[in-house]
Amino acid sequence: MVHIELTKAPCNQTLEVITVSDASWEKRFESMGIRKGRHIRKIASQPFGGPVVIEVNGSKISLGRNIAAKIEVEVLARPLPV
């Protein structure tokens, strides 16, 4: 499967976190529940370089573009149960 940066992933589909490209951010992501193997949903991507908003285990988190780009995901075929 292809791994893409979270910023390039489509909205409203189940994504699986594959890896965090910047090791210094791993801990911070992890404490917010974003870690390898986690299924997440991208809710929105704001225009003009605004943040990406994702849903992780029921909570929503906004991440600036460059922060979101550190997360590599895989698009899973099956949609997330709403």
Binding site: R28, M32, P51, V53, S59, K60, I61, S62, L63, G64, R65, N66, I67
Partner: peptide, 10 residues
């Protein structure tokens, strides 16, 4: 100038 990284409450 770090970017936003913020939990959005319900």
């Amino acid at each position: 100038s770090p970017e936003i990284f913020l939990e959005i409450p319900p």
